[in-house]
């Protein structure tokens, strides 16, 4: 059942090149309580310019999947391909920016300095650092906050700064691990809107982990529903929603139908449990 919908999704998107590909990926953590199967036989293809959400209960492997794409974890079986390379190579080639659940800004650096951190490490010139910092801060609507320290900003602004940091070096893939999970509903709505706007303007490929159904449906062109023990994909939904998405779209029948299907997928995962 899983492979069917997966193949269906791949066929529909066949015209666009694959950016991230997982083939028969399994990942097992050895713990004191025995092995934990974070991922088992996962197959997935993410194409250029897609906005893909991973949704599922905790322990379903959605974060592990994203971390494995970023070579922060290493699969025990199967292969990942990122831009046609192994994840390690893709990281060396600056293929992706990663946004963590906590903004993780360095408290001793100003916002501008935080955003230029990857640029310093990657050896950009001073002039180019400044130019890029100004550009991405503008992109996340934080222009004028360069000189502020992180504690002077709200949680939502800090998370926007961390997105700017991930955008600074022009990676065409953005991996986001529950970036808005710790923020309140109103701030979250606003950031979701901004993120969609940003995605449309930059044409990045985005992998987005969440456990909010409305968030996943609102943002994504493709929703990957996962379930735990072992972590696996139970459904891949190609969103029928148009690319223009005002917040009100969440009250339309189409939106509610997709949300319903996601919910069904999550429930099915639980029955298996």
């Amino acid at each position: 059942m899983m492979t069917q919908s997966e193949i269906g999704g791949a066929a529909a998107e066949a015209t666009k090149p694959a950016v991230i590909e997982a083939r028969d990926v399994s990942l097992t953590f050895e713990t004191n309580d025995g092995p934990v199967h974070a991922l088992r036989d996962v197959n997935l293809q993410i194409n250029k310019g897609e906005f893909v959400s991973f949704i599922g209960p905790s322990g379903c492997g959605k974060t592990t999947f994203l971390r494995a794409v970023a070579a922060l974890e290493h699969p025990t079986a199967g292969t990942f391909t990122v831009n046609g390379m192994r994840p390690d190579e893709a990281r060396q080639a600056r293929a992706y920016g990663y946004v963590f659940q906590a903004a993780g800004l360095y408290p001793w650096r100003t916002i501008g300095k935080n955003v230029s951190l990857p640029l310093e490490i990657m050896g950009y010139s001073k002039a180019e650092q400044e130019e890029r910092v100004a550009r991405v801060l503008d992109l996340v609507e934080l222009a004028g906050f360069e000189k502020k320290f992180p504690w002077q900003l709200s949680g939502g602004m800090q998370q926007r700064a961390s997105i700017a940091r991930a955008l600074a070096f022009d990676a065409d893939i953005l991996l986001m691990d529950e970036p808005f999970g710790a923020l309140d509903e109103i701030v979250r709505d606003h950031l979701n809107e901004q993120l969609l706007e940003l995605w449309k303007r930059t044409e990045k490929t985005i992998g987005f982990v969440t456990h909010s159904i409305p968030e996943a449906v609102y943002l994504s062109t493709k929703i990957v529903v996962m379930s735990p023990r072992p972590g696996r994909i139970t459904d891949v939904i190609d969103s029928p929603l148009p690319s223009d998405r005002p917040l009100e779209i969440r009250d339309t029948p189409e939106f509610i139908e997709v949300a319903h299907r996601v919910r069904e997928g999550l429930r099915a995962g639980h029955v298996d449990d």
Partner: peptide
Amino acid sequence: SQLDLMHTYS
């Protein structure tokens, strides 16, 4: 996560 971030920058 701060160390992981550095790791993603190689």
